[in-house]
Nucleic acid binder design. Sequence first.
RNA 1: GAUUCCGUAGCUCAGCAGGUAGAGCAAUACACUUUUAAUGUAUGGGUCCUGGGUUCGAAUCCCAGCGGACUCACCA
Length: 517
Amino acid sequence: MQQDPLSPSRQGHVLSEQEILRRQALDHLKALGIDPYPSSAFQRSHSTQEIHTTFKDEEAASWTSVSLAGRLMSRRIMGKASFAELQDATGRLQIYLNRDELCPGDNKDLYNEVFKKHCDIGDWVGVRGRVFRTQVGEISVHAEEFVFLSKALRPLPVVKRDEEGKVYDGFTDPELRYRMRYVDLVVNPEVRQVFVQRSRMIEVMRQFFNRNGYLEVETPVLQPMYGGASARPFKTHHHTLDMPLYLRIANELYLKRLIVGGFEGVYEFARDFRNEGMSRFHNPEFTMLELYVAFQDYHWMMQQTEALLEEIALALHQKSTLQVGSHTIDFKAPYRRVTLYDAISEKVGSKVDAMDEEGLRLLAKKHSIEIDASMGRAKLLDTLFGELVEPHLIQPTFVTDYPVEMSPLAKAHRDKPGLVERFELICNGKELANAFSELNDPLDQRERFEAQLALGRRGDPEAMMLDEDFLRALEFGMPPTAGIGIGIDRLAMMMTNSASIQDVLFFPQMRPERNDV
RNA sequence: GAUUCCGUAGCUCAGCAGGUAGAGCAAUACACUUUUAAUGUAUGGGUCCUGGGUUCGAAUCCCAGCGGACUCACCA
């Protein structure tokens, strides 16, 4: 298209017709002596929500001067009168502009030029006037003053909703929504709601932990040695120290050092990084809550966890049950507890507790589960559980007592040889939390690390590194401790009934855009 | 990483037995002083993701690439 010389294009981007028109509107506003980007503060008396909830018709006489600010989301111009909708953080409110009341004198520019011609959907404006109810019953603000707060140069998608809330011309392309979350948030109010709920969920958790006297702490994101989980890390380099550093895959080992140091309850909402595949359940960076409490064990941690989740559900939904996909899930405590062995045995109809590797292999074959020769007994159990049991655990369930080979940081079971005191909380067929009575025997921990090293030598890319400083800390003595990690994004997905992790992250990881932003 | 599907106007989409692009909303102009998916009339707006190929002719068919969605596999 022909480029208007008054409207410089951005690098590598040809302006659309609507962008050119908006730039011209900007110039017209300036010519009228209006600053499209004023610096002075705009004093608001109310939010749109406050007006909606507190205005009463019989008190209309006292609502003669309110001021509100927001983004213009629609305009209905009918000659000398117009309606428009203003959206702020709390919602939308209709404003009514009447030419002769907005412009009592001879100069009608403010209405005819500024509002009708140079104002666009997406612009930020401020309005002062009186509250009233229209003939159709809509609470509105009758504008006596109208000021520009910020001009939008790009057209916003115009999403319309009818009386039943049916959406027309929705802004739905997932790629555009994730890449331009700012636009998504403006036009899709339910998106904002998801993130408000996520924030509220974390607030409830923080209150729960603080109330119990645990200390919120911060530990290194850049670690010389990654640990605390089995995953491939992101690697970077520190120039001054000339050494490799890893972005943490977990903070477990640091929090336990703090327990050694004498804190009796520590927690951190940790951003962790794992250099692995992406899917609707996986983002390269994600948030995990880790909590460690001295003098407690995993039984206590189960009680704590179910109390926490029930509290979150109640805070977000005013009831313990919520709809997640096609299931109704009840977070009311207590939750079912079942051992890993029993969970599998129930499903396959024969006891797996004493089965050896060969028996498990036959079992896997019988259920046509793919296995390979390198799998040991623990891995086979894990696979059987993941294939046969986990997808069917819809209601919150604590699965307990895992083989020691799968859990190098968990304490040996007090009376079941070969197992550790560990539980995973499964909900809606997915793992929500992982917890143990923490291993505090430094000699046992060293042996576990060495077993991991052996796995690494055999080529397991996720085998743990041996953390000599962590062992030194344990050798100074760590009290018996219960610890847990909760996937915050997964929990947020569940609590907001979101199908994808991208829906609970403001800016999910995407491939870079190529050109022409 | 593998499979399937998708990429056309600012947004949502149609167009695909190959003949050179269409709707609604948004935009522009006019009318309209309580409308609400406002309405009426008129108008403008497109490297049809990119690059090759087949063809007289490609948005449409073929190949490759880029981006996205979905399902699957590992991990939270």
